[in-house]
């Protein structure tokens, strides 16, 4: 066991997988030098420039060339430097990677992983802060993972690399170095599509993912201590496919659902979770399915004061829990 932060865990996942299988390559901007977040530190020394390839500054081509290479026996991990810069590759992900297997009647497949740092809270301004999971969770043919802890990141990244489908792997950048966690020695994976109950509770089910998991756990502690309210916190970890069974099971137990996500509230992934709960757990509900998310402004302003005002935080989440608990 060793304590690792999330970037180190991601580094190790890729490093170990590339040692295991020489079909795997990493490609992206600045990855040769180690990457702006250092996720590929030392990769060129170990694997050479061909397997840790600096690409021209062209996101569509990074993903498109990864798709092409995947058709011809290579398993590429494409790094997009910030999720905000993945939009030029939207066409490649949506029109190509996601549809290739389907449109060819199952005769072609596209085993790529597109890794990218996402999320706010680091003074990134409107172009180093976006949450993009809802775009891709809407597209059949892609898997979408959101991680914000070292243990989950390593286990899920390994699963993503071994998955025969295209996977969008979103790493919350505020969590990269925010905390360390014990990581087991040796190989382990976490199944894609499996949520984790990070905290057991009986009064309210709080469903979240990404950095909001940490904020939600803080809020839940506060409520336990100050109000005696018992909040169950579920981290989805994967938004496509997502673990409906675990979420519905929890809501049927507690009768109340609070969904917390960092993205803009309208059309965010939490809206899908809310709709599913409303439809499939209606008879069990004892309060309105409630969402805490960012208001519909372009996330997020550069100024710390403005950013803090926009983003959900433990205090805002605690307030929503109180309101729902009192219902």
């Amino acid at each position: 066991m060793a304590e690792k932060n999330m970037v180190e865990a991601i580094h190790d996942a890729m490093f170990e997988e590339m040692k295991r299988d020489d079909r795997i390559i990493v490609m992206g901007e600045d990855v040769g030098e180690g990457g702006v977040f250092r996720a590929t530190d030392g990769f060129v020394a170990e694997f050479g420039e061909e397997r840790c390839m600096d690409t021209p500054l062209a996101e569509s081509c990074i993903v498109g060339a990864a798709i092409g290479a995947s058709l011809n026996g290579i398993i590429p991990i494409a790094e997009i430097q910030f999720a905000d810069f993945s939009h030029p590759a939207f066409d490649q992900l949506v029109s190509e990677a996601a549809r290739l297997h389907y449109r060819s009647n199952g005769t072609w497949s596209c085993p790529i992983v597109v890794r990218t740092p996402y999320g706010s809270g680091i003074h990134g301004g409107p172009y180093h802060s976006q949450s993009i999971e809802a775009f891709y969770a809407h597209v059949p043919g892609l898997k979408v993972i959101c991680v914000a802890s070292p243990y989950d990141a390593k286990g899920l990244l390994k699963s993503a690399i071994r998955d025969p489908n295209p996977v969008v792997f979103l790493e919350h950048k505020k969590a990269y170095r925010a905390f360390r966690q014990e990581i087991p020695d040796g190989d382990y994976t976490i199944p894609i599509g499996q949520a984790e109950t990070k905290r057991e509770g009986s009064d309210i089910s709080l469903i979240t993912y990404g950095m909001m998991t940490h904020h939600s756990l803080k809020a839940a502690e506060t409520l336990e201590q100050e109000d005696g309210t018992s909040v169950e916190v579920i981290d989805l970890r994967t938004v496509s496919p997502w673990d409906k069974e675990r979420v519905l099971g929890s809501v049927k137990k507690t009768g109340k659902a609070l969904i917390v996500y960092e993205d803009n509230i309208t059309g965010g992934f939490g809206a899908e979770v809310a709709a599913t709960i409303a439809q499939d757990a209606f008879d069990y509900l004892d309060g309105p399915v409630t969402r805490v998310a960012s208001p519909d402004v372009p996330i997020s302003p550069y100024s710390g004061i403005l950013e803090e005002y926009i983003l959900p935080n433990p205090e805002k989440i605690a307030e929503a829990i109180r309101k729902l608990a009192a219902y």
Binding site: I25, E50, R51, S60, C61, V63, G64, A65, A66, I67, G68, A69, S70, L71, N72, G73, I74, P76, D91, Q92, S95, E96
Partner: peptide, 17 residues
């Protein structure tokens, strides 16, 4: 022309292999 990067990627794989 979304397939242009695919052709380049396929050729990259041929070269790597």
């Amino acid at each position: 022309a979304t397939h242009f990067p695919h052709a380049a990627g396929i050729a990259l794989a041929s070269k790597l292999r």
